[in-house]
Design a protein around this nucleic acid. Sequence first.
DNA 1: GTCTATAGGACGATAGAC
DNA 2: GTCTATCGTCCTATAGAC
Lengths: 189, 189
Amino acid sequence: MARRERSRLPAGQRREQIIAAATALVAERGFWGLSMQDVADECGLTVPGLLHHVGSKDGLLIAVLEHRDAEDRRSLGEPHTRDLRDLCAALVRRNAGQPEIVRLFAVLAAESLAPDHPAHDYFAARQRTVLESIAALAAPVCPAPEALAHQVMATMDGLQLQWLRDPAGTDLVAMWRAAAERLFAGLSG
Amino acid sequence: MARRERSRLPAGQRREQIIAAATALVAERGFWGLSMQDVADECGLTVPGLLHHVGSKDGLLIAVLEHRDAEDRRSLGEPHTRDLRDLCAALVRRNAGQPEIVRLFAVLAAESLAPDHPAHDYFAARQRTVLESIAALAAPVCPAPEALAHQVMATMDGLQLQWLRDPAGTDLVAMWRAAAERLFAGLSG
DNA sequence: GTCTATAGGACGATAGAC
DNA sequence: GTCTATCGTCCTATAGAC
């Protein structure tokens, strides 16, 4: 990566730029493999300049994840007002258009299994809420909503990994369509 | 981790010890997060002593993966002589007893999405062969064996991630049993 | 087969000037 | 808001003795 031009920016813009650069680099290398130097270079900053904005390397990761959450809330609306089948399809369609974000989550989800990873608690909480949301949506039409929730989440995560590993030879939306048919076959809804 | 006693060992035993230690540490931190110093400490060696056996850090990872492959071949027998449903159940049962190995693969599978990761090609090839094996087993009893293969692999990988994140609150074998019912419901076999 | 010694960097973070 | 300078630590890898 070439070092960019240096210039003075307002703090808000600079922060956005930093988060965008860090998102790409964390998706590529994970958190353990991320270097502040690379992020700084990408932004046309020195490392102390970068640290002025995010405080520490952990702070940078937290900023990235919080920014993602805000984006998600803005774009997805109220999940509990939708049908489970439609919600999943919409989610898959959206993910198919932003492989870099999907990769960010895939890499961090695995890396953060380690209890001392800075995103460990974040991903533990995320798993709980995702499973609960799916189960709540499935409850009216399924006799075992928790079991279905586990399977739905697993299928989405697993298919995404396959797709990220072979984006050219693989169609995420098509794979999900086929999988959903089996997943939702017996539902009364 | 405390530094162990130093002693001279035959090369074969030392290699096994190194691979065991590295397996645990890679599962914990991934490859980018692995340090040769930690592996050496765990084995009661200095870093140059460790490098004498594995050549380089990449060489250590390759040794770990090759050792896993050998173990798998020894323990699983000929996969194509079995029924798909039974094979999956056996695999899940086995994985439920070795969370550390499952974590090794989960972490490396995500990390190795990066094209310059030393295990990138390994995991790309692995995905191809796993999908082909499942599809071959499914072909006699399923009209769309490739689609089923994607879904079976995705479900196993995804459930394993959920289980690793919450081993106490989650039962891998039970989750798979419930999922398999939906997965294999319409099969003619 | 294992060591000591060391090269040669990269790392995250801080202090303080501007 | 960004810099220079620097600290102390960690890293992989090599050379050569034993």
